[in-house]
Design a protein around this nucleic acid. Structure first.
Ligand SMILES: [Mn+2]
Ligand SMILES: [Mn+2]
Ligand SMILES: [Zn+2]
Ligand SMILES: [Zn+2]
Lengths: 142, 142
DNA sequence: CGGAAATTTGGAATTATTCTAATTCGTAAT
DNA sequence: ATTACGAATTAGAATAATTCCAAATTTCCG
């Protein structure tokens, strides 16, 4: 897994020509740059609006295509909260999502040292977890 | 919280006139009975199809209305897995959902003895969790 | 330079869910 | 029983996120 999560002020043209086996086209670079710039879990439409600033000709269909490609290649994570539209997150480390009911903001939440979710669930022998999603809502402290 | 989760073979007409402050109409009884009968996490449309068997005049809009009322009054739980249509679950105890990739079936999964999710997450002081959803996908053992 | 393959694009299609406005129902008062 | 009224149901239209489609463009390679 490539270490994009830390690269804060990254320009699209700084990306290598290929990431995780995915060809970095102009549009994919732009979409990825948007997601890495403000880490606020934007929706596809948010990404579209922001990408349009620097690339006025990009289409919403392309944003959806790029997002799907980036998610499939494990470059960004797709985040689903209740029935809302999907959001996109550049943080690939193990974490879950807390939506603050006041602000609407989504916070990344990590597990306490050494805890693995599979350890705390009553799962039958032989279970293989391929996908896992934890989401919370409420008042986020601080 | 009323103990409906155990009542397996319940006929609609057996429900009291009011549950959790919600008036039990004919349609709401039928919808609830469907969800309690087969505990397979049906979608709204599944519920509609099954309810139609005993009540041919019920409408899909009504099924959605009833489901919303039942969820709001904490009589059934709404379950969201990825981007799929919502499913409905009569199990009100603390549990999460595992979708088996082979069969498509959804299994209830409980926490191990004494474990509370909030204990294992790095949440800032003062955080109040009002809603929590955990979903898994993969190969369910046994 | 060609040509094939991949990508982008605008617009149409899909589909789960919500909305609307009219009708019907349930209950309680007359 | 009849009436009245708020609540619930209904059919169908509207909405909105996402996917599909077919044509145009770009990229890659020989
Ligand atoms: Mn906050
Ligand atoms: Mn299984
Ligand atoms: Zn995140
Ligand atoms: Zn369940």
């Amino acid at each position: 897994m490539i270490s994009l999560a830390n690269k804060k002020n990254l320009k699209p043209e700084d990306f290598p020509p290929e990431i995780e086996g995915l060809r970095m086209t102009r549009q994919r670079r732009e979409v990825l740059a948007v997601i890495l710039r403000d880490r606020d879990h934007p929706t596809a439409n948010d990404v579209f609006l922001r990408a349009q600033k620097r690339m006025p000709t990009i289409s919403l269909a392309t944003v959806y295509n790029c997002l799907e490609a980036l998610v499939t290649h494990n470059i960004v994570r797709q985040v689903n909260l209740e029935r809302e539209s999907s959001r996109y997150c550049p943080n690939l480390s193990d974490h879950c999502h807390f939506q603050d009911e006041k602000s609407g903001k989504i916070h990344d939440v990590v597990f306490k040292e050494g805890v693995k979710l599979e350890d705390i669930l009553e799962l039958p022998k032989g279970t293989e977890v391929s996908h896992l999603e934890i989401s919370l809502k409420g008042i986020f402290g601080k």
